[in-house]
Structure formats: C-alpha cells, structure tokens
Design a binder for these strands. Structure first.
Ligand code: ZN
Ligand code: ZN
Ligand code: ZN
Ligand code: ZN
Lengths: 165, 165
DNA sequence: CAACGTTTGCAACATTATAACAATTGTCGC
DNA sequence: GCGACAATTGTTATAATGTTGCAAACGTTG
C-alpha cells in the first residue's frame, strides 16, 4: 500500500496553501486575469483545509476581516476561481474546494468522507475512459462531468474521530 | 448503432409512466410501505417527462389540483420516494427524476442534455468497476456515488430544438 | 487627464430546503 | 365499533443557498 494521500494524514498543509497560491498567480498571469485581493483571499480561505467550504462560510470569514462582503462578492470571486480551474464546486455539498490539479487538463473525481468532511481529488484515466465509453454508447457528447463519491476515508475507518484540518 | 434510448426519441411515454407506477406499487407492497395519494401523485408528476423536476415545480403543479401543498409536503414525498429508490436526485440541477431501474441494485449514471433537459439514466458495470478500483487505490470505502454527465444528447446534436417530453 | 472596461459595493430578491408542532388518518388489539 | 398508538399530512415560520440590477471605485491605455 503506497503512502496515504495528504488529506488523510497529518501533513504540512501550509505547503498545500503556498503551492495553490503560487499556481493561481501563475495561471492568472498566463491568462492575463487579475487575481485581485478578494479573489486571492477567497482562494486562501478555501484552502484553509481539505474540507469544502460553503459560500456563506467564506462570507462569514470575510466579514470578520474588514472586507465589506455581501453574497455577490463571494459568488463572483468563486465564479472567477471556477473559471480558471482554481477551485471546484462539490454539488452534493453545495460547497467549494481547492483544485489540486490546477493548470492540468483533468477530470476530477472527488472522494468525500462523510465523517471528517475531507475531500480528496483524484485523477483517474480508467474512470474517465469508462465514462467516455458509456456516453459514446448512447451517442451522447459529454461536456462536464460531476463525479462525487461519498464514503469513509481510511483515517476515519481506522477510528479517528476527525481528520486533519 | 443500436436504437436510441427512450428519452432521445419519440416514444409511448405513457408506457414509461405506467411501468413506473406499477413498479412503485410493487416495491412499496414488498416493503410494507404506504404509497399514499400524495406520494403517488408526486411520482407521477416527476414522471411526466424525462426532464428532472424541481421540488417547487412539483409544488406548483400540486397547487393547481386541490391538494393543499406546502414545501414540506413535497419534500416529504420526495424523501419517501428516494428512500425506496423510486426517484433520484440530480445534485447538479437541484431536481428529481424518476428511476428507470427501480428495484434493481444499480449505480446510476445520468446523462443530462443541457439543450433539451432530458436525462437518461444508465447502468454501467465498467464505470462502476473503474470507480471502485480508483477508490480502493486510496483505501476509501464508497457509500454513495453521484455521477452526472452534462452535455448534448444525440437528438439535440442533430439540430432539433427540443427533445421529447 | 479622459475614456473605457473591469471589478466591487450594495440592496433587494429568488430559489431551495428544513424545523417545529398541531391535526388527521390508518392500524391493531380489544 | 372503540381506544390507543404510530404514521402521515397540514401549517407557519425560518434557514440556507444563489442571483439581479445598478451605482461607485478602480485600472489600463492612449
Ligand atoms: Zn493540505
Ligand atoms: Zn474521514
Ligand atoms: Zn418516457
Ligand atoms: Zn437534448
């Protein structure tokens, strides 16, 4: 068994955050898109853990920071981050999580632990191929794929009460 | 190319409805569950087409029928129908669609046309296996799988403005 | 600086979903 | 049938999530 993925074990999460922010700055520069203060702060808040954050959670945190935030502020920042593939929306949770494959062409598969709430984003070529084949069988042309798997992460299965923040 | 699936071509949809209601009655009898008038009517409304229906759409239609309906009425009926696998919730649409595999153990894959709105529920063993393998690789135990594929159905690709109701 | 497009602030509103408690209905033993 | 009990439904209110529209502020470019 290879080493467990980051969300499932203690790790230097600050490194996750730094990497995400660096990627974001790079991607935005490449696209001539402005990673403004609010957008960057929202991304940073989303990355405060591997647990998806609701728009209103983000809003509440911004509220305690002097930013004069209303729902559109948050949703606009989220739209921007989604557009450039810096975050993903988890439909089954109405929440948002940082993309761990920013800048790479990828089709996210999300493993969502119902105990600790952490989410692991996978890339799976076999899954992508199987889905593509299934769609082709019906002559359907896929556009966007939402694949969210809820269950128990290894850490929670082992009995830990909560995962790493 | 085999014949297109029902939602993508004109078909005797009344047969879909009858089959769904018959299945529902059978499944409820088996489980000693009461398919009350409201529950049956909600199921029937959901089955009025292959396009998922929002809870408030259902509510509005009930409202025109003498039923004295409020949101909880609908959500409770939906909870019941979900519990017995008679309908599915489409997370990415916040809407509900009739299950076309009621009573069978299955893992739904939903093909959602962004043009006509029709949904086709597939069962795909290869997809299920690929997902299972991917989860196992991370030592994750799946519980519930949401797989929703948005795109263009064959009918809409061929230029028709709308699909069959 | 002036003009323009982008981003943000802000107020109101729309949509989706749930909580709490009372009233009604169905079921079962008597 | 009748009373007791559980399941279902009615009703009101409220929570949670997401959007519209317009005005002000900001950044860029000539
Ligand atoms: Zn981390
Ligand atoms: Zn967990
Ligand atoms: Zn049909
Ligand atoms: Zn279509």
């Amino acid at each position: 068994m290879p080493e467990r993925a980051l969300p499932y074990r203690p790790h230097n999460h600050q490194a996750c955050v730094s990497q995400a922010l660096a990627d974001a700055r790079h991607i935005c520069r490449e696209h001539n898109a402005r990673l403004t203060a609010i957008r960057e702060r929202v991304l940073e808040l989303i990355w405060q853990s591997h647990k998806p954050l609701g728009a209103y959670d983000i809003l509440a945190q911004l509220g305690t920071e002097g930013h004069n935030a209303a729902p559109p502020t948050v949703y606009r920042a989220l739209d921007f981050l989604l557009q450039y593939g810096l975050v993903h929306r988890i439909s089954s949770l109405n929440a948002f999580t940082g993309c761990t494959h920013a800048g790479q062409k990828h089709q996210g598969v999300f493993l969502i632990c119902r105990q600790c709430g952490n989410v692991l984003e996978l890339e799976s070529e076999p899954v992508a191929r199987a889905i593509d084949t299934a769609a082709k069988t019906e002559d359907f042309r896929p556009d966007e794929i939402t694949l969210e798997i809820t269950g128990l992460c290894p850490r929670c299965r082992a009995g830990a009460e909560t995962g790493t923040d």
